[in-house]
Amino acid sequence: MISETNLNKKPNYLNPYFGGVLLGLTLLAVFFVAGRGLSASGVIKLAIVTITDFISPAYTESNNYMNKLVPDDGSTPMFSWLVFSAIGTFFGGLISGAVYGRLGKLRIEHSPKISSKTRLFAAGIGGILFGIGSQFGRGCSSGAALSGTAAFSFGGLMVLMLMFGTGYVVAYFFRKLWI
């Protein structure tokens, strides 16, 4: 089921459709077990709340966005489904990287036309935009676009179409980053 490696040093990836079926079944499993979709990055949100709550509980209480995420019984927000699944995601990637021989020392992957610095800068900016966007969108590509749409949510489909739509519209202006 693994695509054949060729002499151009093409990495050893799963057939994308096979990977897609596996991902779909995983999604189905999480719906069956938890009644909600996959989520990658709620953990970051919870981390921010936890840190803020540690420094200034009064502030988290006054912030209407954060106070919903702090449990009333005084336990830590980090003891949550989102956190454990994110830890799992990390180790899943780690094992897959080990199995397919992609583990390596710290490295930066970028288009030959840009420097490593440019790539890191772009990654940071992209991360910030994605971070803000994911909160307005009630979830990222896995939480809103994939899981949301799979559960027939209208908002999920909207985020999915807007995300890819915007991507295609603005792709031209950022082509130097990639090709």
Binding site: A122, G126, L129, G133, R138, C140, A144, L162, T166, V170
Partner: peptide, 13 residues
């Protein structure tokens, strides 16, 4: 949110 994530996706990859 969708539009911002679209930008983030293309820029951040």
């Amino acid at each position: 949110g969708g539009v911002l994530m679209g930008f983030g996706f293309v820029i951040g990859g």
